[in-house]
Nucleic acid binder design. Structure first.
Length: 569
RNA sequence: GGCGAGGUAGCUCAGCUGGUUAGAGCACACGACUCAUAAUCGUGGGGUCGGGGGUUCAAGUCCCCCCCUCGCCA
């Protein structure tokens, strides 16, 4: 039994995430956490909302609410949706927690002690009317390059040229529309990442078992151009962790907060503190290598856009502190999921969002499709045809129907209890051999976080049951040799329990239904398959479960396709 | 423009350090079965592995050039 710390990239607070966000971090992290728990390992699985920054402030203003209140509400919404998808977080925290405030300030102070913070005075755009400094992308104006009149301060959406806000002609605030903008001096703290370049580089180079997606992105940032750059870790904002605090080793940072990319990863640790406070558990044995965390395996899940912060920024914080914090052991990253020939788009309402998905179908449908099509080697694409075909074929026909045909046949011929009689022969031995081989492959892929391949093996396990049943043909055998038919069905009923156990990480809802139908709470992993196939003894009562997965009709598919197409630009 | 990832059957994808007739699922065709959610099982057709050169006894798998897609950066 090992100890595994698992974190999913923390979703931003402003709004509900789409299926692409889900499959890029939370869902595969949940799959892994559930699998490791099922194998008897000790798991701490953490996620949280990322709440600070300008977008949250503006979203709150738009909703007409104080930002703290807005975040509290949205956190509850996201937590509820996560529950709907059966995401098994041990704690779903908040980056705005007191724990994270304290820890973020402590890290900043410590990094300063280690000589890794420097102060920089720079010029930033200030909007007099809004009474605030504005991030580059919240300033619009006419592009000096192509004349496009809605170019953003960081980049022109029309000609894609990278811009500086001061380059814009007739710049205005996108918050208020005001043109009363001026450059003002402001002081910020910079994290001296460049000092850590060699240590990071050595560390990344040593990780030859990481996904190439992870290491290639990390190496690019380390070596591109002038190499790893220092980054500002403060902003002129109100909503966030104050950069000026008691014991701060700098002055004059009043009215400024730490930038989200600095405090958000620290929430991984603070989240464990939140969890400990709520449960009385010990968080240090997960995060402090001097307090027992040296035997923890720490795995992070994220979309590729988050890789730089997890391979460079956060490790600078951890390593730079020169304190015994647990450093990540494995970073599993994902490409993007596209939607029907384009990208998911929040602003255009294009694609399916997490709350909408749950209104259409139970979580298992989405979990299965998303995980079995996870964008591991390249970007993947969601289409309704593919979703309908996969769900109907894999879940309804192959698995659901198997459960149905076995339990209903037994009920009609032997009653709703595991029947007696008959013996195993060559067919059963062949099945056991097949199952053992498939199960070992499945376990290997799950341990390696090869999500798609694991799903293929799981499906193969289901198919093996149908093959066996088809060949054994108990509906024929029962006419001449009822006892032998009973032996076949006895095995098949036990197979249902085994499927429930091994399928649970992917489809926890259906797994629970199968287990309930078999009237047992025996979730033990079928390490010994032969024994597992007799776990439900002769005479054990069961009941025919409700249809596990109804099919998605062509009409539904067409309707949904239309409904989620969004407003094309 | 630079960098990275891809371009393998109609569709979605496997193919490790080069080595017998290039694989799987879906879709399609035919057959079997009739317990089951018109479900299941079997068989089969279908690919000059983006294009062109080269290395090698042997290349989807290595090298060079080109084309296309996606992403990151300038």
């Amino acid at each position: 039994m090992a100890r595994h710390l698992i974190t999913s990239a923390i979703p931003y607070i402003n709004g509900i995430k789409h299926l692409g966000n889900l499959v890029g971090s939370q869902l595969p992290a949940d799959l892994y956490a559930r699998y490791l728990r099922a194998r008897g390992h000790e798991v701490l699985f953490l996620c949280a909302t990322d709440e600070h920054g300008t977008p949250a402030e503006l979203a709150a203003a738009k909703a007409g609410k104080p930002v703290a209140e807005y975040c509290t509400e949205m956190h509850a919404v996201q937590a509820e949706i996560a529950k709907g998808f059966a995401l098994s977080f041990d704690h779903f925290g908040r980056s705005s927690s007191p724990q994270n405030h304290a820890l973020t300030q402590a890290f900043a102070a410590r990094l300063a002690e280690q000589g890794l913070i420097r102060e920089v005075v720079e010029q930033q755009m200030y909007s007099v009317a809004d009474g605030r400094f504005l991030p580059d992308r919240y300033i619009e104006g006419t592009c000096p390059n192509c004349g496009f009149d809605s170019a953003r301060g960081d980049q022109c959406d029309n000609c894609t040229k990278q811009l500086d806000p001061v380059d814009l002609i007739n710049p205005r605030s996108t918050v208020s529309g005001s043109t009363d903008l001026e450059l003002r001096e402001t002081k910020h703290l910079y994290l001296r990442q460049s000092q850590m370049k060699q240590r990071l580089s050595d560390w990344i180079e040593s990780k030859d078992d990481w996904p190439v997606l992870t290491t290639s992105i990390a190496k690019k940032w380390l070596n591109d151009g002038d190499g790893l750059q220092d980054r500002g870790i403060t902003r002129d904002l109100k909503w966030g962790v104050p950069a000026q605090f008691d014991g701060a080793p700098w002055e004059g940072m009043e009215g400024k907060v730490f930038y989200v990319w600095f405090d958000a990863p620290i929430e991984y640790i603070a989240c464990a503190q939140e969890w400990a406070e709520g449960t009385g558990a010990d968080w240090e044995r997960w995060w402090r290598t001097d307090k027992g965390a040296d035997d923890v395996t720490y795995t992070q899940f994220m979309g590729k856009d988050n890789v730089p912060f997890h391979t460079l920024g956060f490790p600078v914080t951890i390593l730079g502190s020169n304190q015994p914090w647990k450093l990540v052991d494995y970073i599993k990253s994902f490409n993007y999921l596209n939607y029907d020939g384009g990208q998911f788009s929040t602003s255009r309402g294009r694609g399916v969002f997490m709350d909408q998905a749950l209104e259409l179908l139970p979580a298992d449908y989405w979990r299965w499709w998303l995980l079995s099509h996870a964008p591991e080697s390249a970007d993947a694409e969601f289409t309704w045809e593919n979703f309908q075909q996969s769900a109907n074929k894999d879940l309804a026909d192959v698995l659901g129907n198997l459960v149905s045909r076995v339990t209903k046949f037994c009920r009609s011929k032997f009653g709703e209890a595991v029947p007696e009689g008959g013996t195993w022969g060559a067919a059963e031995e062949a099945l056991i051999a097949e199952l053992e081989s498939r199960l070992h492959a499945y376990e290997g892929y799950m341990e390696a976080m090869e999500v798609r391949k694991a799903s293929i093996e799981l499906r193969s396990l289901w198919v093996a049951g149908n093959e066996y049943l088809q060949a054994a043909a108990p509906w024929t055998v029962v006419k001449t040799d009822p006892e032998q038919a009973a032996a076949v069905i006895r095995l098949a009923l036990n197979l249902i329990r085994i499927y429930a156990v091994v399928s649970k990480p992917f489809i926890p809802g259906a797994a629970a239904s199968m287990m309930t139908g078999m009237k047992t709470g025996d979730w033990s992993w079928p390490t010994d398959l032969r024994a597992a196939l007799t776990a439900l003894p002769v005479g054990h009562a069961f009941e025919v479960p409700e249809v596990l997965f109804r099919k998605i009709t062509d009409d539904e598919r067409a309707e949904w396709q239309e409904r989620f197409a969004g407003t094309r630009a």
